[in-house]
């Protein structure tokens, strides 16, 4: 039972991350490789606030979101300044720089040793101590994020994002600045990633920089690509697929030593096949050219 709940929590975290990535890659057409950096900054902000200040969970969550929205300003600058491959490279650079800072700024982040003893969330005196309670909390936050993105999907703002993705020149000629909408999309994406980061930090009660590497960024991109760009059910399906794949491997009795590598190999193979034969993913309505 606990095992199923663990999978549920992981799925909820990855659904949130996938939705945040989808807003950039699927709606706004920005292939950002710095999603793990957003995720990491959110996790570290929440962990540091929880350990050092002792504020309650809701305040910390809001704080982490605000910090993340401020920390994404360089990525906004990149998105306005660069296009295509150069944007990818700039965000890639940002990802590596953030990882280096998390790894080396020992006085704040405790470097490679990470931050331990992150308390479980307490909301209005009610403690989310056990696993079922935590899964419930994560589920509630995940549902909120889903609801938020559903509203966004149906709002006019979403049309502007898609305008940025499809034709920036036309946007400009209608008097809408693409840079403005890119900034909104990136801030929202970064803020939502902070929710996933906070949940991650509280769930494991220990974080270190190796959870927020470039590989994690590639993983989050592939989740969205396999699920499908531009739709909500795409991201959800991609995240569920990623989290449930190792469980399928468990049934065929793969030895544990090989399991993680084999899982990534199968996953990479599926990514390549998807890119070649089904660029829309499971449920996408947009694909990269």
């Amino acid at each position: 039972m606990n095992y199923l709940l663990h999978i549920l929590v992981m799925a909820e975290i990855y659904i949130i991350l996938g939705l945040a990535m989808n807003l950039l890659a699927g709606y706004s057409g920005l292939l950002s490789v710095s999603q793990a950096a957003f995720y990491g900054i959110g996790a570290y902000a929440a962990a540091l606030l929880l350990v050092n200040t002792g504020y309650s969970f809701p305040i910390v969550l809001v704080g982490a979101i605000v910090i993340n929205m401020i920390a994404c300003i360089p990525v906004i600058a990149f998105s306005i300044r660069f296009r295509d491959l150069f944007f990818v490279l700039a965000t890639l650079a940002w990802q590596v720089i953030i990882f280096t800072v998390l790894y080396n700024w020992v006085s704040v982040t405790n470097g490679p040793y990470g931050i331990s003893g992150i308390p479980k969330p307490v909301i209005f005196g009610y403690q989310f101590e056990s696993l079922p309670q935590f899964a419930l909390l994560a589920g509630a936050l995940c549902a909120l994020v889903l609801l938020f993105f559903y509203g966004l999907h149906n709002s006019p703002l979403s049309r502007y994002f898609q305008g940025v993705r499809d034709d920036q020149l036309t946007m400009l000629s209608f008097g809408k600045k693409p840079g403005y909408y890119k900034a909104i999309a990136i801030s929202i994406s970064s803020g939502v990633s902070a929710i996933a980061g906070t949940l991650f930090a509280c769930y494991y009660s220990y974080i270190d920089p190796t959870s927020f590497t470039m590989d994690e960024s590639i993983l989050i991109i592939s989740i969205v690509l396999i699920g499908g760009l531009g739709t909500l059910r795409g991201s959800v399906a991609g995240a569920l697929f990623y989290v449930l794949l190792p469980e399928v491997l468990r049934f065929v009795n793969v030895p544990d030593a090989f399991a993680s590598n084999l899982r990534m190999m199968i996953y990479a193979l599926i990514l390549i096949l998807m890119v070649m034969f089904r660029p829309y993913g499971f449920f996408g309505n947009y694909r990269f050219e």
């Binding site: 292939l31 295509d84 491959l85 990818v88 590989d215 590639i218 991109i221 592939s222 690509l225 590598n261 084999l262 990534m264 190999m265 996953y267 990479a268 193979l269 990514l271 390549i272 890119v275 070649m276 660029p279 694909r287 990269f288 050219e289």
Partner: peptide
């Protein structure tokens, strides 16, 4: 385009390194 080949290259990287 470059985005799609970049992603396929990421897939090749993950596959080979884990192999």
């Amino acid at each position: 385009g470059q985005a799609i080949t970049l992603i396929s290259s990421m897939g090749v990287y993950l596959f080979m390194i884990n192999g």
